[in-house]
Computed example of a mutant assay.
Amino acid sequence: MNPDRALRRSRLKLLALITVFALPMLAAWVMVTWRVGIPEQRTAHGELSPEVPLLAEWPLNELPLSLQTNDWILAFDCGTECDAQADQWWRLHRALGREADRISRLRIGGQATEPLPGETLAQWAEVPEWRSPGKLWVLDPQGMAAVSYTEGVDAADVLDDVQQLLDMNPQPPGSVDAEVAKR
């Protein structure tokens, strides 16, 4: 084979290889710069709340021991219709089906003496500035607020977000529930 032809062939292969790796980067740059091909749909219905501290730092009278697990937590601040809110979030909890055991509920405030099944009661020791009556927070297993919702949010939207969070964050392999699910 002619050495000049072999050199040209090697250069073409190198150019093709560079093109294969550079073309996706060029396409991504075009998509970001001119907003072409980027979906406009919204997947989360809640809001991010970076100002909310970890659950362990919340000014509650006492943090119940039942919440110091590796569960996700639905924490809601009872506003005006506390019993109706508690019932709504209890129904949402049940709607999760087999994933319901990965969620705990924390009701803060209100006049309830008996919690609903799967619910923990707490009271504010002092009112933090980031608090707002009727607010709902979804807390991750480390106690960080993943998403928050204002009063009057549709429970179906919260259910959609919680299911997505649980799907994206599967049970750790060593957990008891993960072992039962394998059988």
Rank of each mutant, 00 (worst) to 15 (best):
R9E: 11
D140K: 04
V158I: 06
G143D: 13
P3E: 11
G79M: 13
V158E: 00
A84Q: 15
W72S: 11
Q88V: 04
I108P: 05
L116K: 06
I73M: 14
Q68G: 08
L96C: 12
V162T: 09
P128H: 04
E99A: 13
W58I: 14
V32D: 02
R107F: 07
Q41G: 03
A16S: 06
D77Y: 15
G37F: 06
I18F: 08
L136M: 09
A22D: 00
Q171L: 14
A56S: 15
R107G: 08
R102D: 01
D154Q: 05
L166V: 04
L106G: 03
M144C: 07
L67Q: 07
F21Y: 07
T113W: 05
V32E: 06
T80A: 15
N70T: 14
W29V: 00
G110C: 12
A95K: 09
P24A: 02
N169R: 14
M25V: 07
I38E: 11
V52Q: 02
M25G: 10
R98T: 14
L74I: 15
K135E: 15
T150F: 05
L14E: 02
E129Q: 07
E62G: 11
E51V: 15
D167K: 10
N169F: 14
K13I: 08
V147A: 01
V180E: 04
A28G: 06
G97T: 06
D140V: 09
H45C: 01
P50Q: 01
E47G: 08
M168P: 01
P128W: 08
Q111F: 13
W72M: 09
R42M: 04
Q41F: 05
A181K: 11
L54Q: 12
V180K: 05
R42K: 09
A95H: 05
F21I: 12
A155Y: 00
P39K: 02
R8M: 13
E129P: 04
V162F: 02
P39D: 07
Q164F: 13
L65K: 09
G118L: 02
S132T: 12
E57T: 12
P128D: 08
T80R: 14
A178W: 07
V52C: 09
Q163T: 12
L7T: 12
Q123L: 11
V127C: 04
G110I: 11
P53A: 04
A125L: 11
L65V: 14
Q123P: 10
T33M: 02
D154S: 08
Q164S: 07
K135H: 12
